[in-house]
Design a protein around this nucleic acid. Structure first.
Lengths: 169, 169
DNA sequence: CCCATACCGTACTGCGTCGGTCCAGTTAGC
DNA sequence: GCTAACTGGACCGACGCAGTACGGTATGGG
């Protein structure tokens, strides 16, 4: 299914929140001073430890800057337009590669020598890498799609999503 | 890591084997009459039950034709050039979608309404789908590149593997 | 007509990875 | 020096995948 980890999804949400906090204005705002991980957690609805984990990954990939100590927090390292989806995925999920057989994982495959495709997946990997590289976070944000059609799920709307609600989004 | 299931990898191997059996001549050969799953298993080194499982998936996606009864077996449904990687992935791993939140999977996400990206992943999904659609199995086979040059990806070889590190990329 | 061959479908199980949590340590403002 | 906040590591349960097994069915040959 080509699944992408949920953490990566969270990472995008967090970065978007970090960019401005206001959903309407998705343009890259480095204006926002710093935001703490508890703060982002409340704003996004993502559990706080998870937010912290994601931010740690993003920080070590230099997508966000961290300020330690009291009154510390996180800031975007560069505007959203300069961050590609590939960057985020690589930061959270590790390098982009479809199979374990490729990209130097020369160790694992016990079909070595039999495998008719050997390194053939590189073609595919590169294609995907390029595709992901062309999409910036700003692209994912600015498109103005009506969110309407999903609201029809009553049991979901009724879910006890605590407190967060209106103020955030 | 954007992992692709190992089954999909096997599927490509099996299809290539089914195309001709001889690695040197990768051109689409519908010439080969039929091949049994045990036969393919020995030829490729993939365990037989797994081969059978893969072939079943491929058969129900109409990528291969099955002939039952004694002297039965499998045949390619169409030449390799007309089978895209996306087809194979969809057959084995299910529809291509990065996250569960999208593509009508309206059920899962409990951040409904909070999620700042809502349906934004569609952009990415489409990009990947197109990229995969452009690569045929023949492409993966015919390219005559020596597997050597993989080494040119220094950041990947250097990585100590753990999922969350990714400092390099 | 019977049997061997080979596909078909389903169900089961072990294992690896991921999502999520927690804790001890460190840094910096007040 | 105290407290707020990031840092890093370890830990654990849950889910999904890979692999296996088994009973069933269809076809061709003797």
């Amino acid at each position: 299914m080509l699944r992408l980890s949920k953490l990566t999804d969270y990472a995008v949400v967090v970065l978007l929140r970090l960019a401005d906090g206001d959903r309407a204005t998705c343009r890259a705002g480095l204006s926002e001073p710093v935001q703490t991980s508890p703060g982002i957690a409340v704003a996004t609805g993502v559990p706080e430890p998870t937010v912290a984990k994601v931010l740690k990954s993003l920080a070590s990939a230099n997508l966000v800057l961290s300020l330690r100590g009291a009154r510390g927090g996180y800031r975007l390292a560069r505007p959203l337009a300069e961050v590609s989806v590939a960057d985020v995925i690589a930061a959270v999920d590790g390098p982009i590669a479809l199979t374990a057989c490729v990209d130097g994982g020369a160790g694992g495959c016990d079909l070595q020598g039999l495998c008719a495709v050997e390194g053939r997946w590189d073609l595919v990997n590169d294609a995907i890498r390029q595709a992901l590289d062309r999409i910036s976070l700003e692209d994912m944000c600015s498109a103005s799609v009506p969110v309407a059609f999903r609201v029809m799920e009553p049991e979901l709307v009724a879910l006890p999503v605590p407190a967060v609600s209106a103020a955030a989004v």
